[in-house]
Amino acid sequence: MLACVKRASGELVVEQRPQPEAATGEVVIDIAYGGICGSDLHYFHDGAAGEFTITEPLVLGHEVVGRIAALGDGVTGLALGQSVAVHPAEVCGECAACQEGQPHLCRASRYLGSAAHTPHIQGGFTEQLVVAAERAFPLPAGMTLRRAALAEPFSVAYHAVRRAGDLAGKTLLVTGAGPIGSLAVAAAKQAGAGTIITSDLTDHALGLAEQMGADVLVRADQTEPHEHPGQIDVAIEASGTAAGLNSCIRAVRPGGRIVQVGILPPGTTAILGNALVNKEIQLHGSWRFHTEFADAIALLASDIDPEPLISHEFDLVDAELAFRTASDRSSASKVLLRMNPEPADSSDV
């Protein structure tokens, strides 16, 4: 089978890998689609995502969906050919975070397509993938695999919105209108937010955020969000930049809340610390998700249409072109790799 591999030398290749077999309690999935994430792009360009550096060949990808191809012994509740979204995290279930109901903070977590551990955790940009059966989430009737390909990034955004607290009637700022920021706009709108202000450096990204429910659009290179009329109660920082975080610190009202979901560059980030203090701002991190995955799938199947964010699709053999396209934020949003799409899901974008 073919897989998209990033080598420690810096080369991105599509190469043959052995087909997997399902052990007891596992399933083999024919992967239909994989979404290219910001962390995948960091691995592609820098050989590292945050503090995690590639030191050996790594199959990229953690936003994957497909159909059940084989069932291991003891697997029940799933059927051959069934459409599923893959939960990318395997957690230990025994550490303090897991026992306290926060498995997404498990330090032993093994996340698809991650260099957090050595050996690295191989990812899902491959024609077939084997995972524990409980990580294969059946899709609701009528939900296409193409739409379900955004379940993982929407879960990240949904977790960030939940970290923001009660948004009913509140004014929200979202800095960064990439896929996570735009999906956070959609999740916040569904959660009852009042006015949603979104800032970004490109008109293309802002236009997508508007389709997801943003009320006010701000070009970050032309004006600061805090210069816009209205008091901002909560901010979600999704750009992963110091400038974005500092815009949030300036913009939120005294006693307001900021949720940092964008992955900041490695090392130290300079922030407006005194404003953080004298405005008594609540600054919260937001790391991935866990239990929200099923809820996120249900919302995408019913209340929230994420498909305007899908800007391009490429076959797996064209992975390098797909990654270069996804790197151009002036024209790309969510770029999908196609592995085994259903005919009804295979329209070109």
Score class of each variant (00 low, 15 high):
residue 4 C to H: 09
residue 4 C to I: 12
residue 5 V to N: 00
residue 7 R to F: 13
residue 10 G to F: 05
residue 12 L to I: 13
residue 15 E to C: 09
residue 17 R to N: 00
residue 18 P to T: 10
residue 24 T to M: 14
residue 30 D to S: 15
residue 33 Y to G: 05
residue 34 G to W: 07
residue 35 G to K: 04
residue 39 S to V: 05
residue 42 H to V: 02
residue 44 F to T: 07
residue 52 F to Q: 09
residue 53 T to M: 06
residue 60 L to M: 14
residue 60 L to S: 07
residue 61 G to I: 01
residue 61 G to T: 03
residue 68 I to A: 00
residue 70 A to L: 02
residue 70 A to P: 08
residue 70 A to K: 11
residue 70 A to D: 13
residue 73 D to A: 13
residue 74 G to E: 10
residue 76 T to G: 00
residue 79 A to R: 14
residue 84 V to K: 05
residue 84 V to L: 02
residue 90 E to R: 12
residue 92 C to Q: 04
residue 94 E to T: 14
residue 99 Q to K: 15
residue 101 G to F: 10
residue 103 P to E: 01
residue 104 H to P: 09
residue 113 G to S: 11
residue 113 G to D: 06
residue 116 A to L: 14
residue 120 H to D: 04
residue 122 Q to N: 11
residue 123 G to F: 04
residue 124 G to K: 00
residue 125 F to Y: 12
residue 125 F to E: 09
residue 127 E to D: 12
residue 127 E to Y: 07
residue 133 A to Q: 00
residue 134 E to P: 06
residue 136 A to G: 02
residue 137 F to H: 14
residue 142 G to F: 08
residue 152 E to F: 04
residue 158 Y to I: 04
residue 164 A to F: 06
residue 165 G to D: 11
residue 171 T to N: 13
residue 172 L to T: 03
residue 179 P to D: 08
residue 182 S to M: 03
residue 183 L to P: 01
residue 183 L to V: 09
residue 188 A to F: 05
residue 194 G to E: 10
residue 197 I to K: 12
residue 197 I to S: 04
residue 198 T to M: 14
residue 205 A to L: 10
residue 206 L to H: 00
residue 209 A to Y: 02
residue 210 E to P: 05
residue 211 Q to K: 15
residue 218 V to N: 08
residue 221 D to R: 12
residue 224 E to H: 15
residue 230 G to W: 02
residue 231 Q to F: 06
residue 233 D to Y: 08
residue 237 E to V: 11
residue 238 A to S: 14
residue 243 A to R: 13
residue 246 N to C: 11
residue 251 A to D: 05
residue 251 A to I: 09
residue 254 P to C: 02
residue 258 I to V: 13
residue 264 L to V: 00
residue 270 A to C: 03
residue 270 A to G: 06
residue 274 N to Y: 14
residue 275 A to N: 06
residue 277 V to K: 11
residue 282 Q to L: 14
residue 283 L to T: 02
residue 288 R to Y: 10
residue 294 A to E: 15
residue 297 I to Y: 04
residue 301 A to N: 10
residue 304 I to V: 15
residue 307 E to M: 13
residue 315 D to E: 15
residue 319 A to P: 06
residue 319 A to R: 00
residue 319 A to F: 09
residue 320 E to I: 12
residue 321 L to G: 01
residue 325 T to H: 03
residue 328 D to Y: 07
residue 341 P to T: 11
residue 348 D to P: 03
residue 348 D to C: 01
